[in-house]
């Protein structure tokens, strides 16, 4: 009697790519920079003496509301966004500094932090161009540099990994027995 091979449901999904790790890593990175934003807004509001309250937009969407001057408002927005970018950069540095973290999907996921920072800045610039006070132009370049630095820090090992995988793939073409020796995920 022969037994039909069963699919391995415990293996990482889709040809060795652990999408769980990718999504969890992205969610953690995004939550980190968001939390840094909120905490730094609160702290800066205390420093500037701005009145801060939690309001509900249209009765359901909670948001922080300031009662302060336009100049103070744009200072708080700019510096809190820079705090976000710094958090993204430190996260990237921490990730690549520890070899245990250099898993490809984790690196991809943590790229989300830098992208979120740049998106947030883009929204603020859009808001500014729409007539509302949002950013201080003279400091916004720091956010861009810091955010992009975090992305590059993660992109370099990803690029190297891609090159290494490419070399491995071409080597294994000549040795078919090695073709299954792809990376495995371990926790």
């Amino acid at each position: 009697m022969t037994t039909k091979p069963q699919p391995d449901t415990t293996a990482p999904s889709h040809q060795g790519v652990n999408y769980d790790e990718l999504v969890i890593s992205a969610a953690k990175a995004a939550f980190l920079v968001f939390a840094v934003k909120i905490v730094s807004v609160y702290g800066l509001a205390k420093i500037y003496g701005a009145t801060l309250s939690l309001n509900l937009w249209r009765g359901f969407l909670p948001h922080l509301a300031f009662s302060t001057s336009e100049e103070t408002f744009s200072s708080i927005v700019t510096w809190s966004t820079l705090a976000m970018a710094t958090a993204a950069l430190l996260l990237a540095a921490f990730t690549v500094a520890r070899s245990a973290n250099r898993e490809r999907q984790r690196l991809w996921g943590r790229l989300v932090a830098g992208v979120v920072v740049l998106e947030t800045l883009a929204l603020q610039v859009f808001r500014q161009s729409s007539g509302g006070p949002a950013v201080q132009w003279q400091w916004s370049w720091l956010v861009v540099v810091t955010g992009v630095a975090g992305i590059i820090l993660l992109a370099v090992p990803l690029w190297n990994d891609r090159a290494a995988r490419s070399r491995t793939s071409s080597d294994s073409d000549s040795t078919p027995a090695n073709q299954v020796n792809n990376r495995t995920e371990s926790r």
Partner: peptide, 9 residues
């Protein structure tokens, strides 16, 4: 992150 901050004058 953006909606979280609205300035009220």
């Amino acid at each position: 992150a953006e909606v979280a901050i609205q300035n009220f004058m």
